[in-house]
Design a binder for these strands. Structure first.
Length: 735
DNA sequence: CGCAATCCTG
DNA sequence: CAGGATTGCG
C-alpha cells in the first residue's frame, strides 16, 4: 500500500541517489569546440588587423588639416556634443571631429581603438602620455570615460606635415574676417607646449592613475544595461541631429565663403549673390525634402538603409552646393571671380576640397558604420561570426523599434574596430537590443568560449593581456581585473534613461534598481567567493560592489582563461547572458523537449554567446523544469491513487485538469502560448508511468524514477523552427 | 577530472 | 530558480 503521506514518502525517497537516466550527454563544449574557438581567437589577433588600425590612424592624421577648417565652424557642434556626452555611441560624428580638434591640444584620445592590437598597447602608452596634457586629466579619458590606452607613433610622423598644412589653412581662415582666430591660436599654443613639457614617464604614471577611474564606474553597468534600449533610440536621434548640425555648420561655412567673394570682389557682387542664392535654394530644397522624413519619430525608425541614403543625399547636397559656384561663376561671367583673384581661387579650392573631403569622410564613416554590421561585413579584426545570418534576417521583434535597435546594436559593435573613432571602441554592453537586463549568470568556472568564438576574438589586446597579469589589480583597491579599456564605458552610461538613477551615485539599496534576481545572485556569489580576495569590497557601498559584480562574476566564469569570454567587447550581437526572455523561451521549449542537448540549446539560443556558464545555466534551467514537472507528476499520481483511481485509463490530462493548469502556470504563466497537444500526451504518459510505478510499489526503490525518466526522455519532439529565431517570443506570442 | 543529472535547500 | 552536494559516466 502506498504511503498516504506523500510528503513523508518523498522525503524518504530522497536518499541521495543519482537517478541518471542515462540520457546521452551531448557535449557541445568539447575540446574540438575549444580548438575552434581558439583558432578564431587567434585569427582575430592576426597582425593584419593591427596594421589596419595603424593605417586608419595615419589616414586620420593626414586629415588633421581639414579639421582646422571645420574646427571653428563646428565649434558649436562641439559644445553640442559635450551636452551629449552621456550618450556614448551617439556622438560618432562629434567624436570624429573631436579627434581632430584635440590634435591641437596635443592630446589624442583618438585611436584608442588601437588598444585592440594588444601587443602595441603598452609601448604606445608611453606615447600617449607623452602627448597627454597634464592639466587636462580628462583628456586621458575619452568622453566616454575610456582610458587612453595607446597612441600611435604615427602621430608624430604626421605632425610636421600637419603643421604645415594647418598653417596654410589657418592663414586662409584668418582671411575670413568673421572667423575668430583666437581659438585657433590658443589651441595651437597648447599643442606646441603641452606635449613637450611633460615627460613621458610622468605622463605614463598619471595616465595609469587616470585609468583607474573607469573601474569605479563599472558599477553603473547594471543600470547601463537596463537603459540601453532607451539609449539606442536616443543615440540614433542624437546622431542624426549631429548630422544635421554639421550640415548647418557647412552651410555657414559656405555662406562665409561667399561673403568673402562679396568683400573681395565687388564687381562680382551679383554673381556671388546669385551663387549663394542658388546654393541656398538648392540646399533648402534638399532640406525641405529631408525634414519631411526627419521628425524624431521617423528618425528613430529610420533604417540603416534609409540612413545611408540620407547620408548620401547629404553628400550630394554638399557637393552641389560647392560645385555650384565653380560652374555658375564662370558661366555667368566669362571669367569667374577666381580668375581675378588667384588668392581667392586658392582659398575657394582649398576650402572646397578640404570641406568636401572631410565631410565626405565623416559621413562615409558614419554610413559605413551603419551599413557594415547588418550585412555582417565586419572589419578583418573580427573573425567571421558563426551565428547564422538568419538571425539578423529575422530581426524585428514585431516592432520596427526593435529592428532598429538590433541594427543599432550592430552599429555599436562595428565602431569598435574603427580607429577613426576614439570612442568607437567603447564597448556597448547594452549593444543588444533586448529589453531585459543582463542577468550575468554565473555558476561555475568556465574556460571555453563555446559558441561565441566569433564574439570572442574581437579585441586582441583584451585577449592578450591575461587576467593573471591584471589580477594584481584586484586587491585592496578593488581594482578591476579587466584590461582597463573595459571599464571605461560605464562612465558615460546613458543609464539616464529608464533607471533614472545615475550610475555614479552610491546606492544603499541596490534592490531599488530593479535588479534581476540574477544580479542578486551574483552579488551573493561574489560575497561568498570573492570577498576574501577583495578585502576592501565589503567596505564598498553596494553600488561599488555591484559594479564589480559583473567583472568578478565574469572573471570567475572565465576563470582567467579565455579573455574573450569576459570581454564586454566581445561585442558581437550575441548576448552575453541569459535574459528573462530567454528563460521564457526555454520554458516554452520545454513543452517540446524535456531533455534538450546542449547543441540543441546552442541552436535555439543562437543569440546567446555560449560559454560554459551559459550552457550550464540553460541545462540547469531544463533540469529545474524537469524537476518541477516530475514532482507535479508524482504528486498528481499519488493524489489520484489516494482518490481511489485504480486504472491508468482513468488518468488523462486535459487542458482544464489541475495538473495541466499547474504545469501551464509554471511554464507558460502568461498563458499566451498554445501548449502543443503532444505535451499533453507526454504528460499523460508520464503521469501514468508514475501511477503505475507507485501502484507497483516501485517507489521503494530509491532510484525508481530512473525508469520513468528513461521513458520520458524518448518522448521529446522536435522544437519548431521558429524557436530558433531570437525573436521567436514576439513572433510566437503575437500570432 | 570534468561534466551533467539529480536531489536538496533556500 | 540558483547554489551546493552527490552521484555516476566517459
Amino acid at each position: 500500500m502506498p504511503d498516504h503521506d506523500s510528503t513523508a514518502l518523498l522525503s524518504r525517497q530522497t536518499k541521495r541517489r543519482r537517478v541518471d537516466i542515462g540520457v546521452k550527454r551531448t557535449v557541445g563544449t568539447a575540446s574540438a569546440f575549444f580548438a575552434k574557438a581558439r583558432a578564431t581567437f587567434f585569427s582575430a589577433m592576426n597582425p593584419q588587423g593591427s596594421e589596419q588600425d595603424v593605417e586608419y590612424s595615419v589616414v586620420q592624421h593626414a586629415d588633421g588639416e581639414k579639421s582646422n577648417v571645420l574646427r571653428k565652424l563646428l565649434k558649436r557642434a562641439n559644445s553640442y556634443e559635450d551636452a551629449m556626452m552621456p550618450f556614448p555611441g551617439a556622438t560618432i560624428i562629434s567624436q570624429l571631429l573631436k579627434n581632430n580638434m584635440n590634435k591641437n591640444g596635443g592630446t589624442e584620445p583618438s585611436f584608442q581603438a588601437s588598444g585592440l592590437s594588444s601587443t602595441g598597447s603598452e609601448v604606445h602608452q608611453e606615447d600617449v602620455c607623452s602627448n597627454s596634457s597634464r592639466d587636462s586629466p580628462q583628456e586621458c579619458l575619452s568622453p566616454f570615460g575610456r582610458p587612453t590606452m595607446s597612441q600611435f607613433d604615427v602621430d608624430r610622423l604626421c605632425d610636421e606635415h600637419l603643421r604645415a598644412k594647418r598653417a596654410r589653412v589657418e592663414n586662409i581662415i584668418r582671411g575670413m574676417s568673421h572667423s575668430p582666430s583666437v581659438a585657433l591660436r590658443g589651441n595651437e599654443n597648447e599643442r606646441e607646449i603641452a606635449p613637450q613639457s611633460v615627460s613621458p614617464r610622468e605622463s605614463y604614471r598619471e595616465n595609469k592613475r587616470k585609468q583607474k577611474l573607469p573601474q569605479q564606474q563599472q558599477q553603473s553597468f547594471q543600470q547601463l544595461v537596463s537603459a540601453r534600449k532607451e539609449q539606442k533610440r536616443e543615440e540614433r536621434r542624437q546622431l542624426k541631429q549631429q548630422l544635421e548640425d554639421m550640415q548647418k555648420q557647412l552651410r555657414q561655412l559656405q555662406e562665409k565663403f561667399y561673403q568673402i567673394y562679396d568683400s573681395t570682389d565687388s564687381e562680382n557682387d551679383e554673381d556671388g549673390n546669385l551663387s549663394e542664392d542658388s546654393m541656398r535654394s538648392e540646399t533648402m530644397d534638399v532640406r525641405a525634402g529631408d525634414s519631411v522624413g526627419r521628425s524624431d519619430n521617423e528618425m528613430c525608425e529610420l533604417d540603416p538603409g534609409q540612413f545611408i541614403d540620407r547620408a548620401r543625399a547629404l553628400i550630394r547636397e554638399q557637393e552641389v552646393a560647392e560645385n555650384k559656384p565653380k560652374r555658375e561663376g564662370p558661366k555667368e561671367k566669362e571669367q569667374g571671380p577666381n580668375a581675378f583673384h588667384p588668392e581667392g581661387k586658392h582659398l575657394a579650392e582649398t576650402l572646397k576640397q578640404e570641406l568636401n573631403t572631410a565631410m565626405s569622410q565623416v559621413v562615409d564613416t558614419v554610413v559605413k558604420v551603419f551599413s557594415s554590421k547588418p550585412s555582417r561585413q565586419l572589419p578583418q579584426v573580427f573573425p567571421p561570426l558563426q551565428i547564422p545570418q538568419a538571425r539578423f534576417a529575422v530581426n524585428g521583434e514585431n516592432h520596427n523599434f526593435h529592428t532598429a535597435n538590433q541594427r543599432l546594436q550592430c552599429f555599436g559593435d562595428v565602431i569598435i574596430p574603427n580607429p577613426l573613432d576614439t570612442f568607437g571602441s567603447v564597448p556597448m554592453p547594452g549593444a543588444t537590443d533586448q529589453t531585459e537586463a543582463l542577468p550575468l549568470v554565473v555558476r561555475k568556472n568556465s574556460s571555453d568560449q563555446a559558441a561565441g568564438p566569433a564574439a570572442g576574438g574581437h579585441h586582441a589586446s583584451l585577449h592578450q593581456s591575461p587576467l593573471s597579469a591584471t589580477a594584481g589589480f584586484s586587491t585592496s583597491s578593488f581594482r578591476h581585473p579587466f584590461p582597463l579599456p573595459l571599464m571605461a564605458y560605464p562612465f558615460q552610461s546613458p543609464l539616464g534613461a529608464p533607471s533614472a538613477s545615475f550610475p555614479g551615485k552610491d546606492r544603499s539599496s541596490p534592490e531599488s534598481l530593479d535588479l534581476t534576481r540574477e544580479t542578486t545572485s551574483l552579488r551573493t556569489k561574489m560575497s561568498s567567493h570573492h570577498m576574501n580576495h577583495h578585502p576592501c569590497s565589503p567596505a564598498h557601498p553596494p553600488s561599488a560592489a555591484e559594479g564589480l559584480s559583473l567583472s568578478l562574476i565574469k572573471s570567475e566564469c572565465g576563470d582567467l582563461q579565455d579573455m574573450s569570454e569576459i570581454s564586454p567587447y566581445s561585442g558581437s550581437a550575441m548576448q552575453e547572458g541569459l535574459s528573462p526572455n530567454h528563460l521564457k523561451k526555454a520554458k516554452l521549449m520545454f513543452f517540446y523537449t524535456r531533455y534538450p542537448s546542449s547543441n540543441m540549446l546552442k541552436t535555439y539560443f543562437s543569440d546567446v554567446k555560449f560559454n560554459r556558464c551559459i550552457t550550464s545555466q540553460l541545462i540547469k534551467w531544463f533540469s529545474n523544469f524537469r524537476e518541477f514537472y516530475y514532482i507535479q507528476m508524482e504528486k498528481y499520481a499519488r493524489q489520484a491513487i489516494n482518490d481511489g483511481v485504480t486504472s491508468t485509463e482513468e488518468l488523462s490530462i486535459t487542458r482544464d485538469c489541475e495538473l495541466y493548469r499547474a504545469l501551464n502556470m509554471h511554464y507558460n504563466k502568461a498563458n499566451d502560448f498554445e501548449v502543443p497537444e503532444r505535451f499533453l500526451e507526454v504528460a499523460q504518459i508520464t503521469l501514468r508511468e508514475f501511477f503505475n510505478a507507485i501502484i507497483a510499489g516501485k517507489d521503494v526503490d530509491p532510484s525508481w524514477k530512473k525508469a520513468i525518466y528513461k521513458v520520458i526522455c524518448k518522448l521529446d519532439s522536435e522544437v519548431p523552427e521558429i524557436f530558433k529565431s531570437p525573436n521567436c517570443l514576439q513572433e510566437l506570442l503575437h500570432e
